[in-house]
Design a protein around this nucleic acid. Structure first.
Lengths: 341, 341
DNA sequence: GCCTCCTGTGTAATCGATTGCAGTGAATGT
DNA sequence: ACATTCACTGCAATCGATTACACAGGAGGC
């Protein structure tokens, strides 16, 4: 089963390869009769372009690379899904890489994507500082958009949500529910998501006079296990505050789970909030109050930015200043918080 | 920022492109001195191979395509993750496609992957019959392995688990827990997973004398919502049987949720089982008894089969008979079933 | 001293699609 | 009737890496 090439189609149709190419790509003038002959020949032979050859010639692969910290995190999964759909609409393909939350793996993946001549890269950096060098270096060579998380000291486009505004909503809601003290459970402050969310949390807590004891800021990683551990610690050490604000839903699921295991009522004794609105936030018991990120929008904007960057010019210098698109997330109130005091 | 080519390295090192290629690929004899010069030049210029050019020349892309019915299904997500890791070990990349459970989308995706010259394709077909034509056609052109699900009437390699054996374990466990009647909640019988699991369920139920009323076989789709609907129906219509066996964990999560909502005790009044052992099976309340699929093994076998097929010969005819690798899944007993009567 | 063999290197063809340039013939303008 | 334009088509270069083949020079065998 040898692949059919343009040359075979040309021979069969009795024309040159140039003409075949022109017919099939719809570029350049070709008489109607020849068009028909070529198309017929192509159909009969079952011709399909060889996109490798085309890519070499055009230096365009119609493929976008995406690097996420972890495929198994449901939030990133749904981001991937949204990006995949957004790309599909433009006839582009997605080359997916998992960085396993390791900046070194991430750097290797980025390098591979560059070598593969992807048209652009969408990355949610694993680390707030260690990811910097690789991301910047990649951005110097290719259109690159950071998604959700970003890394400091780089000048690239970014699309995400306004974490600080989101946290303001969360805190206002908790305060309305009667919370006068709160804890924050996040990952280590090595990525922008936790950083921003923590900053928003702290600021609004101050504004509202919500007490945050120093030992009530617990940093680990984005996992259910860490949520359970953190909650257990809060419960053991003199009882939890009125509210536990979590940096993502996985942590929040762990927290509510541990609370229930220890007989601490949610939201009666302690209110709990998550972040991301993954599907299981809705399904847990009690259903999680959380912050919904507009993933489809985020994905669509990211794809748009890439396309724009690609159109602007290959050279990074020629492109304008980098865009920072901050979308407004919305609070989804469910059963893990109290509607009012 | 023009990309560095082999020609520039050659010029800088004062040798021919052939020599540069030989040094960099480690093929062919090159004297130590020249090797050093070439490597130095390559480093200074920051040379990176252009994998498109290499792919065109070698007709090998080191990229594998994967098509799954839905990225958002946690089971497929973890399969994707496992495959990605397995491929990474061989220096291959993953081109990921989401078929949205639509055989037509799936067919288009498969065609695209062929056009992209991937080295092989891993697919979990959306539909038990409608996916057939496209899968077979693709398999005629490229090494292809079906994963988890398979489609009838095709002759391709397949890797998955023995659903019938798994169901035997499930039924034995439920029977030991005192179940004398049971219901089955699955998706429509349009994919092999549900089909096989249902067949295994039915057969073992008969063996054990477990009663399955005709109206206790409910078929919808793989979603939490369908699980809730189905359970509500079972509860409304004269009460549920002793056990509800679900074709996957999402359905089971919906079922237990609906049971709790209707005040039906799980596992006291009714035992519930899932399938796949997704992460949230462990976290739900009660934690789900389910069937664990050895994903890493499945992924590893699939990658191995692809590599073998690629090595064997491009022509489908030259390859031996197709391999069907059936791994043995294991029952994970948690809190949604009773240990004994 | 001559022939063979081997190591090391360069030349040029190759993979397949695209496209700038040039050439042909017909149509249009004056 | 001749010049000019234009639609159509083919030739050949191009993208960048790989590799078959050729060739030069040195080592070794007799």
């Amino acid at each position: 089963m040898q692949r059919v090439t343009i040359a075979q189609v040309a021979e069969r149709a009795g024309v040159s390869t140039a003409t075949v190419s022109r017919v099939l790509s719809g570029r350049g003038p070709v008489s109607a009769g020849v068009q028909r002959k070529v198309r017929a020949a192509a159909d009969e032979l079952g011709y399909q372009v060889n996109s490798i050859a085309r890519a070499l010639r055009n230096s365009r692969t119609d493929t976008v690379g995406m690097v996420v910290p972890s495929i198994s995190n449901p939030f990133f999964t749904s981001l991937v899904e949204s990006v995949e759909h957004a790309l599909g609409r433009e006839g582009k393909e997605l080359l997916l890489c998992d960085a396993r939350s390791d900046p070194e793996v991430e750097a290797r993946r980025l390098a591979t994507l560059v070598a593969r001549n992807v048209d652009g890269i969408i990355v949610s950096p694993s680390h707030g500082t260690l990811s910097g060098a690789a991301v910047q270096e990649t951005a110097d060579r290719l259109p690159l958009v950071q998604l959700d998380r970003f890394v400091g000291g780089t000048s690239t486009d970014w699309v995400g949500v306004d974490d600080v505004a989101a946290m303001r909503q969360v805190m206002d809601h908790l305060h309305a529910g009667g919370a006068r003290s709160a804890a924050f459970v996040g990952s280590l402050l090595t990525n922008s998501s936790t950083e921003q969310r923590f900053a928003g949390f702290r600021r609004r807590a101050e504004d509202l006079g919500i007490v945050v004891a120093p030992e009530h800021v617990l940093l680990g990683d984005y996992s259910v296990e860490w949520g359970e551990t953190a909650a257990a610690r809060l419960i053991a050490e003199g009882g939890p505050p009125d509210a536990i604000v979590c940096a993502d839903d996985l942590i929040a699921l762990g927290v509510t789970r541990a609370c229930r295991a220890h007989g601490v009522d949610v939201p009666g004794r302690v209110q709990v909030t998550g972040y991301d609105n993954i599907e299981f936030a809705r399904l847990s018991e009690p259903a999680l109050t959380t912050v919904d990120q507009p993933r489809e929008r985020i994905a669509a904007e990211a794809v748009r930015l890439l396309a724009a960057a690609a159109a602007d010019g290959t050279d990074r210098e020629e492109r304008g200043p980098s865009a920072h698109i901050s979308l407004v997330p919305s609070l989804v109130v469910r059963d893990s918080t109290r509607a009012d005091a």
